[in-house]
Write a protein that binds this DNA or RNA. Structure first.
Lengths: 184, 184
DNA sequence: TGGCCAAGTCAACACCTGTTGACCTAGGCT
DNA sequence: AGCCTAGGTCAACAGGTGTTGACTTGGCCA
C-alpha cells in the first residue's frame, strides 16, 4: 500500500516541526526531516518548494489569545501566563519558531508579528499604551519560554506550574493594567 | 610590517565575537571570521584548534554582578536591571552567547552556569530560595535581552532606558526580596 | 651575512548541504 | 487488458563547510 499525497505531506510537516524545534533552522536538514517522515528529500521539495517555504508551513502559528476584556481583572495575569504555558507545551511550533528566529530573519519577522500585533490587540482596551504593555508582557513570557523550554535552566524548568503562575501572574497583571510608573 | 601572534589572535577573537553575535554558531563561518580579521582560515585553526574552542574563547563571559548586599534594598531591582542593560550593550559577548545557546549545547551550558550559579550566588543572603529567585530574575532579564537586542521587537527595542528601569526594576525587586506568594 | 623560527599563504581533502531531473511503479480508470 | 498519473526512488549537481599539510616569507639573532 502506498500513502496518499496528503498523508506524506502531513508526516513531513510534523517531522519538520520536531526537527526545527529541536535543532533550529540551519541544523534541521531536509534529509533528516525526510528520514523522520519515512520519505525522500525530493518529495519534500515537491510538496513545499524549498526549505524556507517548508519552515513557513511548519511554523504557522497563532497565539489564540482569549478575549481579555471579559475576564475578571484580578485574574488577567495568571490566566495569560497559564495560556502561554499551554501554548508552549501542547505543540512544538513555538519552540521551533523561537529556536529559528534567533538566526533566521523570516522566523524573526513572524515572532515580531505574533508578539507585537497579536499581543497588542489583546491588550488594547485594558489600558493606554497597548503596544508598550504588549512589549513588556512579551519580554516576560518569552523569557519564561526561553529559560524553561529552550535553555532549560534548572530552577525555571523544574518550577511547578503553580509556582510559575504565582510569581509571574502578578508581573504580567501589572504590565497590562498598572499606571505608567513614570507619569507624574 | 607583520603583525605579532598576539595581535592576530586578538583580531580573530574580536571578529569571532561579532560574527557569532550577528549570525549564531552555525552561520558564523571560520572563513568569514578570518576575512573580518584580515587573516587566513588556517591561522584561526592554528591559534584556537577548532571552531568549538574558538567559540569557547570568544564567548568567555562573566556577569560581574555587583555585591547586592551592600545596596539600599529599595534600589536592588533597578540597579540590577541597569547592570544587565549595560552588560548587553558594552559587549557583543552576551548576544553571541544567547544566539549560539539556542542551537549549541556548549553555549547553552555556559548560559546555565551564568544565569544559575552566578545569579544565585548574588541572590543568596537577600532571601531564602536563592536558586528559585535567580531563575525568576533570569527569565525576566533574558527575556528583555532577547526581545530588545536579538529579536528587536519594536516596542521593547525602542523603549527608553528609563522606561525599562521603571517597569522592570520593581519586577526584579519582587523576585529577589518578596515573600513566597504560595507560602501560607 | 646566514640561518632560524614565527607568521602567513595556498591548495586541497572529505564531507555535508539544498536542489534538480530523470526514472520507476502501484493502482484506479476506460 | 492497457494506459495514465500520482506517488515514490535514485543519483548527481554545484556550492559551501571545517580542517589539514606543505609551502613561502619576513625579520631578528648569532
Amino acid at each position: 500500500m502506498r500513502r496518499s499525497g496528503d498523508q506524506t505531506k502531513a508526516a513531513i510537516l510534523t517531522a519538520a516541526r520536531e526537527r526545527f524545534a529541536a535543532d533550529g533552522y540551519e541544523r534541521a536538514t531536509i534529509r533528516a526531516i525526510a528520514a523522520d517522515a519515512a520519505t525522500d528529500p525530493a518529495l519534500v521539495m515537491r510538496h513545499f518548494g524549498n526549505k524556507e517555504k517548508l519552515f513557513a508551513a511548519a511554523a504557522d502559528f497563532d497565539l489564540h489569545l482569549p478575549d481579555l476584556s471579559t475576564l475578571p481583572t484580578e485574574e488577567l495575569g495568571t490566566t495569560l501566563v497559564d495560556h502561554f504555558l499551554r501554548r508552549w507545551e501542547e505543540d512544538d511550533t513555538l519552540q521551533a519558531l523561537l529556536r529559528a528566529a534567533v538566526t533566521n530573519e523570516a522566523a524573526a519577522d513572524r515572532m515580531r508579528e505574533i508578539f507585537t500585533s497579536q499581543l497588542a490587540t489583546a491588550a488594547a482596551g485594558l489600558a493606554d499604551q497597548a503596544e508598550l504593555r504588549a512589549g513588556l508582557v512579551a519580554s516576560q513570557t518569552l523569557g519564561l519560554g526561553l529559560c524553561r523550554y529552550v535553555l532549560i535552566l534548572g530552577p525555571v524548568a523544574e518550577m511547578p506550574r503553580a509556582t510559575v503562575l504565582a510569581w509571574l501572574g502578578p508581573t504580567v497583571q501589572r504590565y497590562l493594567t498598572a499606571a505608567d510608573p513614570l507619569a507624574g
